[in-house]
């Protein structure tokens, strides 16, 4: 044991399991928490416990939620004919921040990756197909514009094309505020492919 208290050792050990946190950072966090009022630490502990006790996956879109169906799926004012397919729940948060999208979501829970052995069976693809009833008219593929995200989008296109729905892909290209001069060939060619009429 490195510390005079076994409790401190245990807290350091547990915190160092978090991504990006080594033993030294964990130790700093533990000593910070020791100096905080007991009430603050209790609130933090309760928040962590609630993560597992209260948060679950929506049975329709597989977004994280505390109520099932989630507030997006149960909102009758949203466009029920439009489903935006994303990789992770974080992507829903990012898209919701824009305030531009008024349809529904479907969270796949990752992307296809040949080297990690993640195929279609490991993602919520069959669950997406079961949602495609008569009222859905358009699927927006909003997977990440990287190799895994593109593979997932290509697979979904092959899978969904026979269903005769409108399939769209989010635009890819130059981000706002960037310089064309420094863009790479792939990004530039995607930007030219995805140009829009003004």
């Amino acid at each position: 044991m490195r510390y005079s208290s076994e409790t401190v050792e245990r807290a350091v050990h547990e915190l160092s399991k978090l991504p990006g946190i080594g033993r030294k950072s964990a130790q700093r966090l533990v000593f910070f928490l020791l100096k905080r009022p007991a009430e603050d630490v209790k609130i933090l502990a309760q928040a962590l416990l609630d993560l597992h006790e209260k948060v679950k996956y929506c049975s329709i879109c597989y977004n994280i939620t505390e109520q099932d169906p989630c507030h997006i799926c149960s909102d009758v004012h949203r466009d029920q004919s439009l489903i935006c397919v994303v990789e992770e729940a974080n992507d829903v948060v990012a898209l919701e921040k824009t305030g531009e999208f008024k349809g529904l979501y479907h969270v796949l829970g990752g992307a296809m990756s040949p080297l990690d052995g993640i195929g279609p069976d490991n993602l919520k693809m069959r669950e997406l197909l079961t949602r495609l009833t008569g009222q859905v008219h358009e699927i927006i593929l909003a997977t990440n514009p990287n190799t895994e995200g593109e593979a997932t989008a290509l697979y979904l296109v092959k899978l969904l094309r026979p269903l005769e729905l409108k399939l769209t892909r989010i635009a890819r290209g130059i981000p706002i505020g960037a310089d064309i001069e420094y863009a790479d060939e792939i990004t530039l060619s995607r930007a030219i492919e995805g140009r829009v009429t003004l």
Partner: peptide, 12 residues
């Protein structure tokens, strides 16, 4: 993994 992946996408 890449061979398992290839079989999966081909079969589906």
């Amino acid at each position: 993994n890449s061979i398992i992946y290839l079989d999966k996408i081909q079969s589906t």
